[in-house]
Design a protein around this nucleic acid. Structure first.
Length: 548
RNA sequence: GCGAGUGUAGUGUAGCGGUAGCACAGAAGCUUCCCAAGCUUCUAACCCGGGUUCGAAUCCCGGCACUCGCACCA
């Protein structure tokens, strides 16, 4: 974007996006997408969805934003629910309270009173200036929703991914128990950011398009090979700038995981299709010390904008963490299975000794049998602890084993829709050299309307034909807009600014020979086509965006 | 959350104790055979709440928002 174009000013003025609830003063980190912006957002989502469905076995989920506490305990988000901070009274530097305590080798308990006390007792001072600390403050990082007394609160999800992980078994069945497959979800996430700023960059409620790829750790491959027809800028954790295809990156071991390499290519193709300037896109590898504890490798797609390189997508190798944690916390069988060479294995089977149980327990026998089947070694009955050992018959049996269970690993490409829109506008707002007018050169498929229909002058005969054409194009399924106010130049300029790529103008020749002009947003050139050919021409332009 | 600064029509701004002016955008019309032209008319604002004052957009306090630093940041 040219420096002089203020994205937020145009976005606000033209109804692309603007601060939400502004008549009441607004609230930081919340934005509305207006009449043009919401259409652009919708188009981007649909392109993403359409593209990713064509990448292989992909299914979609739509899960609630309100999330059970236990889900977030399992995911680890709950432990990060509170951020404990202390501030130095003299130099105002702020620290994580738990970090300060930990750095002195003291035990950390995530409790406000505990942290407060230990800082007071041990007389911990600011490491920077030696000043005294303020009281420990708590910042909630997730939004909590109360259900009522005596009920656990719900939380607004900080990411859509957990909805997918908890449903792993559902999708495993859907794909008839074969890996790999991917599950996508487009939806909103919520994070109580400490200081949401810079417009769409950091929001409290944000849109994401997430994809969770489930893989067998022994066969960690997506169904398609990494692309070799695109060159991508990779910035490694050793600060090397490399330019190569995803295929090369994988083969040379720059990206060790095949699906990770594959999805950098997918992301790149997606950016290119929606109109991001791919020369301003790079994939930056997280440094070892920045990696989440469960991730072995993460590559963030970043876009260069007026506020610098911003993260627009995270592609993370999450290992077995997600499904593993839900197995642990829910005690459900969320394992996948793989076929192995059939072989015999010796196995001890436990069988209740029905005769003895019946003799000793009579009509309570049922409870004993149940306990044994549950694998218990003792049972509490008639106020007595009873050892079950003597009621169990152990049999050694040989079974044929032809499959084994494992926890699937996850590779997660997670696209931040709002940031993508920010970067898209940044890359595509441009000024005409001759007059300084702003136009938004986004691809026709992303544009809020494919075309505007305009009578050259607000004359009844021209208006009537223009309205007929407008209605015809609507009936043919195009998103078009009609405008007859002001001069023709004004209308062109008006829709250039929100990215409408084509202007269809009805003039006096139209009345004679049933042709109209199509005017191109990016070049301001015009061609003349017959009204009868408009539908096919627009359909063609929707894909090519070019004149011929 | 801290520090500093800033909030005036849709947007950009002027006014800084006497109840708001300009430009662009917007609406209606005239005019124009294609790029925000011109003319006429019109619509439209002092972020919110308190206080001081005869009188507050203007001074003071509190909130909210934005900008820049700091901090935070899967």
């Amino acid at each position: 974007m040219k420096d002089e174009i203020d994205q937020e000013e145009v976005a606000k003025r033209r109804g692309i996006y603007f601060p939400a609830f502004s008549i009441y003063g607004g609230s930081s980190g919340l934005f509305d997408y207006g009449p043009y912006g919401s259409l652009i957002k919708d188009n981007i989502q649909n392109i993403w969805k359409e593209m990713i469905f064509s990448e292989g076995p992909v299914a979609m989920l739509d899960s609630p934003a309100l999330t059970l506490q236990n889900v977030l305990k399992a995911s680890g988000h709950y432990d990060r629910f509170f951020d404990y901070s202390v501030q130095c009274k003299s130099c105002n530097t702020k620290f994580r309270a738990d970090d300060i305590v930990e750095s002195l080798g003291l035990k950390v308990i995530l409790d406000r009173d505990y942290l407060n006390n230990i800082i007071r007792e041990k007389g911990i001072k600011c490491p920077k200036c030696g000043g005294e600390f303020d009281d420990v403050r708590i910042h909630k990082l997730m939004f909590q929703v109360d259900q009522g007394e005596n009920m656990d609160p719900l939380f607004l999800r900080p990411e859509t991914a957990q909805g997918i992980f908890v449903n792993f078994k559902e999708f495993y069945r859907f794909f008839r128990e074969k890996l790999p497959f991917a599950v996508i979800q487009i939806g909103r996430g919520y994070r109580n950011e400490i200081s949401p700023r810079r417009g769409l960059y950091r929001l409290r409620e944000f849109n994401m398009m997430e994809c969770e790829v489930f893989l067998d750790p022994k066969d960690e491959k997506w169904v398609k090979e990494p692309y070799d027809d695109i060159k991508i800028h990779y910035l490694t954790n050793k600060d090397e700038d490399l330019f190569m295809t995803p295929k090369e990156a994988y083969e040379k071991g720059i990206i060790k995981s095949q699906p990770l390499a594959y999805f950098t290519g997918f992301a790149f193709k997606f950016y290119s299709r929606i109109g991001l300037d791919v020369n301003k896109i790079r994939f930056r590898q997280h440094k070892k010390e920045d990696l989440s504890h469960y991730s072995s490798d993460t590559w963030d797609a970043e876009a260069l904008t007026d506020i610098g390189w911003i993260e627009i997508t995270g592609i993370a190798h999450r290992g077995t963490y997600d499904v593993g944690r839900h197995i642990e916390y829910s005690a459900r069988d969320l394992y996948a299975q793989r076929l192995v060479e059939p072989h015999k294995e010796k196995k001890i089977e436990l069988e209740p000794n029905f005769k003895e149980i019946k003799r000793d327990f009579g009509d309570k026998a049922g409870e004993i049998i149940k306990a044994i089947n549950n694998g218990n070694s003792t049972v509490f009955l008639n106020n007595k602890q009873i050892s079950l050992e003597k009621y169990i018959i152990r049999k050694e049996v040989e079974v044929t084993v032809d499959r084994e269970s494992f926890v699937p690993i996850v590779v997660e490409p997670s696209f931040g829709l709002d940031r993508i829109i920010y970067a898209l506008l940044d890359h595509n707002f441009d000024k005409r050299e001759e007059n300084g007018y702003v136009y938004l050169k986004i691809p026709p498929q992303v544009a809020p309307f494919i075309a505007g229909v305009y009578p050259l002058f607000p004359k009844e005969d021209l208006e009537k034909v223009a309205k007929d054409i407008y209605q015809k194009l609507l009936n043919d399924g195009f998103k078009v807009i009609y405008d007859d106010s002001g001069s023709i130049g004004k209308r062109y300029a008006r829709y250039d600014e929100v990215g409408v790529p084509f202007g269809i103008t009805v003039d006096y020749d139209t009345l004679k020979d049933s042709t109209v002009t199509i005017r191109f947003r990016d070049t301001t050139e015009q061609i003349r086509v017959s009204i009868n050919d408009l539908t096919s021409k627009l359909r063609e332009l929707l894909w090519t965006g070019k004149k011929n």
